[in-house]
Amino acid sequence: MGPDKKKMLEKFPVAQFISGICGQNIEQLWREFYRLYNILRQSQLTDQEIHQYKIDAENWVRTFCCPSEGYINSLQNFGLYRKADVTPYMHVFAKHVPLFMQQLKTKGLSLQIFSTSSIEKKNHNQVRIFFGSTTMEGGNKEQSVVYDIMSFENRQLFYLIHNTPKEITIQNIYANNKENLLN
C-alpha cells in the first residue's frame, strides 16, 4: 500500500463528511483496518499475536457488513456496508492470512517480504486489454468473462512461444509474371 493510502486510512476525518454515528463507525472501521494492515507488515509475530490478528480480522469483516437493526423510520442502528460488498481480498484477509502468517513464522519469514504488486499489475493489464477491446458489443455471451480473459491470454502466450508474427504481409502473385513462378 502506498504512503498516500496509508495516510488516508490513518488520518482522514470521515466523521466530518458523513454525519452522525454512521460517519464515526466508518472512520473507526478504516482505522481498525489500518491497524490490522500494520500488524501484517511486522517482521516478527508471536503465536498469540497471530491468533489475536485472526480474531480481530474476522471481527473487522463482521463489522464491515453488520446489518441495520430496527424498523424503518425509527431510531435504528444503521449498518455500514452490505454483505455483497465483501471482496475476495477481505475473505483472504480474515480467513487465510492468519494461516499464511503461522506457516511463514515456522520458516522464520513474514508477510512483510511479500508484495502483490505484480499480481495487481497483471490483473490491471488483463482487464484493460479485455474490456478495452474484446467485450465491446457485449463480449462472448456463451462463456464467462474470466473464461474469455484466460482464452485471450492463452492465445497471446501461444503466439509468443511459437514466434508467430504479429503482422501478415499481403503479397499479390500475378500469374503472368514469370519471376513469381520461379520463386
Rank of each mutant, 00 (worst) to 15 (best):
K121M: 13
H162W: 11
M150H: 11
Q156R: 15
P98T: 06
R128H: 08
Q48M: 01
H124L: 10
K95A: 10
V61G: 03
D148S: 15
I149Q: 10
S117G: 09
E120C: 05
K107F: 07
S117Y: 04
M90F: 09
G138S: 04
S151V: 01
Y159I: 00
I39Q: 04
T63V: 01
P88V: 13
E58G: 03
E58K: 08
I39N: 02
S74M: 10
Q102C: 03
Q102S: 14
R62D: 15
P67D: 09
Y71T: 13
D47R: 04
G139A: 01
G138Y: 08
N172L: 04
M101Y: 07
E167H: 10
K141Y: 02
I161L: 08
I149M: 15
Q156V: 09
I129N: 14
Q103W: 06
G108V: 05
V97R: 00
S151K: 12
L157W: 05
E69T: 09
H91S: 07
W60K: 01
F158W: 10
E69V: 09
S115M: 02
C66F: 06
S43V: 00
K105I: 01
A94Y: 01
N73E: 15
I50H: 03
T164P: 00
C66W: 00
M150Y: 12
D148G: 15
F152S: 13
I161C: 04
Q156I: 07
F64H: 06
H51P: 00
I173E: 04
M150V: 14
R128G: 02
Q126S: 09
H124V: 01
R41S: 11
S151N: 10
F114R: 00
H96Q: 14
F78S: 06
N140M: 03
G108Q: 06
G132A: 05
